[in-house]
Structures are given as structure tokens and as C-alpha cells.
Design a binder for these strands. Sequence first.
DNA 1: CGCCTACTGACCGAGGTGTG
DNA 2: CACACCTCGGTCAGTAGGCG
Length: 290
Amino acid sequence: MKLNSDQLNAFFEVAKRGSFSKAALSLALSQPALSLRIQKLEQQLKTSLFVRDSSGISMTDAGEKLLLHCQLRENIEQDILQDLKAQGSLARDSIQGIVRIAGFSTTMRSVLIPSLHELILKHPQIQLEAFIREMHELPAVLKRSEADFAISEGPITLGNVENILIGHEENVVIESKKIISGREDIYLDNDSEDQATFNFFKAQGNGKNKKFKRNYLDEGNAILDAVELGWGRSIQPRHLIEGRNNLRIVPGFKAIKVPIYLNYFKQPFYLKIHELVRDHIKTGFRRGLG
DNA sequence: CGCCTACTGACCGAGGTGTG
DNA sequence: CACACCTCGGTCAGTAGGCG
């Protein structure tokens, strides 16, 4: 049985966008035409690829398997194209293509950028798309193929996902060096879903599971700025306060180690660019986080 | 109630194939 | 080569259901 490439492209687009309408728009097709392509693919495979309901679509197990196939197919095609282009231009060692990395806020600026700095400068043809998501969103981002790599605080328990421990962040209590404002019991977090402060005090043991008030700023650098201004304290990775001379680590608390993982779908074949980025992240994070 | 989602039916056009 | 027919895949218009 041979799979039709138009149908596979239609499936891949729907899987990536999570919507028939958006995929149809992206493929310059009408929505019914796209719907028919998917239906025919499902008939050919004798299985459903999506669960449709009025609130949208979700992928079946068969759909997730086919998505992996489509990702692999895209990787192989990109690699062949890159090889052919390189032959044409005699630039055999040039690395090009798109790499998409989803991560959470604390590692993006201080660790990811230094990890990829050398690689990005050396290969101008690499198109990097790095974006920040909340920790709980990362598995879905990977599953929908919106990112090639995710950087998270734990293993992602999806089938066929590789979880590589790339270092630990050391969470500490920080406060302003200069301003003593009587706001020592106010802790700044991203939002009400952010469990960092709760988890930190829970890990301190019974005696230090103290009560505190919370303020929310939704963005890592805003939190650091606000702490510098004396708005309160915050639980942050130690590496984030390097270079911020107005901040200090509050003594008397045990630093809590948080493991950081690099997550990506296992593939029988990887693009060269993905292998390079993966290796640079692994070594860069181990160097940056210790 | 309007908007958004996907599906169905009717119809149309392009391309392939058979026939004279 | 020209024509007729068929198949496939497209669009348009309309429908149904859930959600804010």
C-alpha cells in the first residue's frame, strides 16, 4: 500500500495546527477538500486519525503514530534537499534549516542563548525559532510538533520521547541588597499556577514551611527587576542573578536542585542540524548549569 | 445569538482513457 | 487527432452542534 503524499501533507498540517480550518487555510484549500483528503487517508489506513467533536479535534493513537512518520519523512526530505543544495553550491559543510525550541523562562536567556551562540554565529543559514511556554504546556507543544525540542523541568511521559538530563538549576531565595522594606514575606511568582515558591518551602522541611503572600508578574526579568526594587523576595535559579549586583541570596535556606531535561521525539533518522543543536544544548547546559 | 468547528450534497473542471 | 465519457478532486452553499 502506497500512501498519497497530498493526503499525508494534509494530515501533517492538521496535526500541527490542531484544526481542519487552519490547516486548509495554510494549504490554500477549502475546508471540505481537506476534510475529504483526511477521510480518504483514514479509509485507506482503515483507522481513524482524529477524534472530531464540536469543540475541535484530537489525535488518536494511530494519528500519533502517523505524525511520527510524517516528522521523519520531513526530516529526510529536508536533509536530501540540503545535500543537493550543498552539492550545487560546493558548500558541503554548510548547515541550514529551521530549528524550533520551546522552553521555560528561566533557562532561555541565561543558558540556551550561550549554548547555541557559537553554532548560530558559525552557520548563518540556521533559522532558530525559540519560544517560551509554561511548563505544563511543553508536552502538548512537542506532541503537536510545534517544536523540535523542549526544555523542561522533568521527563515528558509521551510515548517515544527521549528525555535527557542536561543539568540542574539550583533554586534559592533572592532579595534586594539595598532596600529593606518590610516586604520579606511577599514572594514574586509568574502566576497563580507557578508552584516554584510552594515547592521550595515544602522541600525545606517542616520548620521552614512558612506562610507567605504572593504577587504575580508573569515574566522572569520583570520579577528580577521588581525584586531589585524591593517589592519582595522570589525563588529563582542561582544562575539568574549573576550580573545583577543589586540582588543577593538570602542566607538560612537550603538550595533546592531542580533537574532540567531536554525532550524530543526519538527518530530513526535526525537532521544534521538537529543533531548539532541537540549536542550544543547538552554540552552548553551542562557547562552553564553545572 | 453570533461565532467557530467539521460534515454533506450539488455542481464544476481538469485530466486520463477508450474509440472512431 | 478529435471527441465522448469517466473519475477524481476541487468549490460553494447549507447544516448541525458546542461555546461564550
